[in-house]
Write a protein that binds this DNA or RNA. Sequence first.
DNA 1: CGCGGCATCACCCGAATGGCTGATGCCGGG
DNA 2: CCCGGCATCAGCCATTCGGGTGATGCCGCG
Lengths: 213, 213
Amino acid sequence: MSESSGISLLLVDDHPVVRNGLRGMFESTPGFTVLAEASNGVEAVELAADLTPDVILMDLRMPGGGGLDAITELTRRGIRSKVLVLTTWDTDTDTLPAIEAGATGYLLKDAPQDELFNAVRQAAAGRTVLSPAVASRLVSAVRSPAPSPLAARERQVLELVAKGTSNRDIARELFISEATVKTHLSHVFTKLGVTDRAAAVAKGYEQGILGRD
Amino acid sequence: MSESSGISLLLVDDHPVVRNGLRGMFESTPGFTVLAEASNGVEAVELAADLTPDVILMDLRMPGGGGLDAITELTRRGIRSKVLVLTTWDTDTDTLPAIEAGATGYLLKDAPQDELFNAVRQAAAGRTVLSPAVASRLVSAVRSPAPSPLAARERQVLELVAKGTSNRDIARELFISEATVKTHLSHVFTKLGVTDRAAAVAKGYEQGILGRD
DNA sequence: CGCGGCATCACCCGAATGGCTGATGCCGGG
DNA sequence: CCCGGCATCAGCCATTCGGGTGATGCCGCG
């Protein structure tokens, strides 16, 4: 942390107006210093590597080096600047990936100024800041209602398979014959595009069919 | 929403002192009405079904009907009250399950009053409110840095297994013998407490060893 | 320096798995 | 009314698994 000049910032946005607006806001407020600006992800990574700002305010959608890749790269390089994603609309599907990639927070640009300031401070302190909309998204992703392509019986079988139940025991458990279990499993394999139970379980988790107990 | 009297509340906590404290806070603040209190989950569900408060402030750990079950039951019954989980420490492993069960927000009891008020208003409006600590938890669950008990090689093998690779092909892929693959897998089984590859994959996902590509 | 964890390999064997072919009954949509 | 999806069942058969037992070499920690 650059103690003397408060929280140091790197602004990343392809739109100069936005950068200017942000720079204005932060420069006219004690406790913040704008170290530099970048207009794309690649630049952002370079500057961040050089200047190690406390917080990087980053737009996601940018020409010439997307924000997402930039975040990934930053974390890969072990640069400790906190990334605060600032986006215009949150209709994006990128919110989750961004967070997974290592973003510390996610805010909408229409957030009131003090919320923004506050978020930056929180981020600098390493705390996660999510705008309500994003938090909701994240939460609903956790309880994602993934429609499964599997028939009810097939899902049941798959669940038991995931628990390590053998075909024979699945048969017993569901009061059907082992042959039927095998048939169901074959269908599961076909539908999931795999050839064995282990991969089927993996797909099951990947597609959210399994995993929500 | 009970327009006339602001946001209506149901307080659920096994500790009378806490209930009292909360009641005091909310009754002395315009815009809130405490409809009732409950000291356990079962009571809470009954009262909620009866009174349909706008927001339910609920402790998680309670004797006689845990908060988690209560939340589950509420969502099951389609009761539209928003549940705001209020917990003392957040060391719990319950935060995620609670959210998955349908909690609208998750706050620590040591949150400052206005934050609490604000959270309740947000919750009443259907927005998700997470205290920073919980948000972090949630986020890190998404990119879970779960320390896997598996050795490097073992993890590799498990990953291939999840892709449906046969032992023989795993051997080829890793330039080792099939026997070695089997040995690794045996160890994986032991460490994960399962007996077959399908269950191993399931555990792998469950424990965050697999799933983050 | 010995013990434990990791990584490697071998051989045996019984049981489980997955592919294939084929069949029946039910149900709902076109 | 027929077709397709679901659910049920059967038998055959090659392959794969998983367990057991045992062995070697390397490395790090005490």
